[in-house]
Design a protein around this nucleic acid. Structure first.
Length: 442
RNA sequence: CGGAGCGUAGCGCAGCCCGGUAGCGCACUACACUGGGGGUGUAGGGGUCGUGGGUUCGAAUCCCGCCGCUCCGACCA
């Protein structure tokens, strides 16, 4: 992509409404534009990152054996009356009437609809287990939306639902989700710590939230500092292996880590004092086991081996896909702008042509760009007629991992300058060596 | 939902107290010079002053209503 043809409305001054760094940087980098309170348009750069994050979530869900699907944003109130949540959910649910005066709502979550799909087609225990998920826009009419995409009213969420015959089987699904979430967040360069949490209106017995530590987080958290030493890494996991998944859950949840909702001072006091930490966190995911809370009232039954109908055991699991952009930026930025982890960076590298119109610079830049395209790096070519300072500032702000600088000085020496956004490491290399370095670092 | 505040050019703001028909910086357009960290000069374009009403000879400015947005709190998969 050529920057001169891209829609990238950079803002130089800080927007006054943006209090936290991720919101400020997303606005300044031209990623989002607010449309009304808590509702945003995703401009090309923001949309590109959103899609990269979404793709990682899809890949990891399918790796764990979960099936993607898509349900509507507008739902009839009838199903929600069946579960009892039409009245329970309160003002946060956006309710509308259609032209026939029927009660409709914009989905804040989809337990009811998914349960209805399940019960319409599944009648035998032999068809279990089933886990399906979607990545779809949700709406929750927050009293006070804030912090940009971190607490929007409209937001993009992965929500998954498992259906199992027994509690044990459903708990395996729970553990499997925990494992896949650990891998998902790590792939985005985030450390998300599973913490025992409160179930809220979803209801249920077991639930963990995944928290990314950040000063601007909305949740207060208490944990044993040793949990931050745990990394999932590149483990080979068999997601059908009950013991293996349970082992990971035990490894990652046996130390003290709780949100303020479930914090227990007495238990916390047992953590060695030098490892007691009180901090703030951003919730990027949550997993629930809630048994038959929905299958009972909605009659989602299957026939067991003995021929008798039993309600299925269920859980649901969410990842705040749009919120993740904010969380990643909170975790990875500096005073000049965003520093994207390579896995979610909107472009793999930016080629900066220092002197547009100069024949040699233009030719070298185009050549560098072509080589990066051929290497699959999805580069951005800054071929704008701005001053050098503005070009560097833009490159820093949008935060792509590599800056490849083409200018007359370097060309005289037969070299380009390669700069790494995160480390600041600069080196002069031949064009081929620079491209190889970028490919190797990706 | 309680409390506080803001709405004037794309963005950030001044002007309002004390009424006389709108200004600054950035951005933008043209040209020239430039170019290794938001460069310089010259010349330009762009505003129903959120909205409706009231007071007044006259309202961005004073009064009332409404709408929108932000912040603090409470609330929140």
């Amino acid at each position: 992509m050529r920057l001169s043809k891209y829609f990238l409305p950079i803002i130089k001054e800080n927007p006054k409404e943006a209090e936290i760094v991720s919101h400020r940087l997303m606005l300044r980098a031209g990623m989002i534009k607010q449309s009304s309170a808590g509702i945003y348009s995703w401009l090309p750069l923001g949309f590109k990152v959103l899609q990269k994050i979404e793709n990682i979530v899809h890949e990891e869900q399918q790796r764990a054996g979960h099936m993607p699907m898509l349900m509507p944003t507008m739902q009839s109130a009838d199903l929600w009356r069946e579960s009892g949540r039409y009245d329970d959910y309160g003002e946060e649910m956006l309710r509308v009437k259609d032209r026939m005066d029927r009660d409709m709502l914009y989905t804040p979550t989809a337990e009811e609809l998914m349960t209805d799909i399940f019960r319409s087609h599944v009648t035998s225990y032999k068809d279990l287990p089933i886990t399906m998920y979607q990545i779809q826009w949700k709406f929750r009419d927050e009293r006070r939306p804030r912090f940009g995409v971190m607490r929007g009213r409209e937001f993009y969420m992965k929500d998954g639902y498992n259906f199992d015959l027994t509690k044990e089987a459903a708990l395996h699904a729970y553990n499997r989700h925990l494992v896949s979430y650990l891998r998902t967040f790590e792939r985005m360069g985030l450390q998300a710590i599973p913490m025992r949490a409160d179930s809220g209106p979803i209801g249920g017995e077991d639930t963990h939230e995944f928290l990314v530590l950040a000063e601007t987080g909305e949740s207060e958290v208490f944990y044993d500092a040793s949990v931050t030493d745990l990394t999932f890494g590149d483990r080979d996991i068999d997601y059908d292996n009950v013991e293996q998944c349970a082992g990971v859950l035990k490894e990652f949840t046996s130390r003290y880590a709780r949100t303020d909702e479930t914090h227990d001072e007495a238990l916390f006091a047992q953590v060695p004092i030098e490892r007691q930490r009180k901090a703030r966190g951003i919730e990027v995911g949550q997993i629930f086991y809630f048994g038959t809370k929905y299958s009972d009232p909605m009659k989602a039954l299957v026939q067991g081996p003995d021929g008798k109908p039993v309600p299925v055991h269920m859980g649901s699991h969410g990842i705040g896909v749009s919120r993740l952009l904010g969380a990643i930026i909170e975790a990875s930025h500096d005073e000049n702008g965003i520093i994207w982890p390579a896995s979610v960076a909107p472009f793999g590298a930016v080629v900066i042509n220092m002197r547009v119109g100069d024949a040699a610079c233009d030719a070298w830049s185009q050549n560098a760009y072509n080589m990066l395209v051929k290497a699959g790096m999805d580069p951005l070519l800054d071929d704008t007629d701005k001053g050098a300072g503005a070009k560097f500032a833009t490159a820093d702000l949008i935060g792509v991992p590599w800056q490849l600088v083409v200018g007359p000085r370097g060309i005289q020496a037969g070299e380009v300058e390669l700069k790494h956004r995160k480390t600041g490491e600069k080196q002069s290399l031949s064009l081929e060596a620079a491209v190889n370095r970028i490919v190797a670092g990706a």
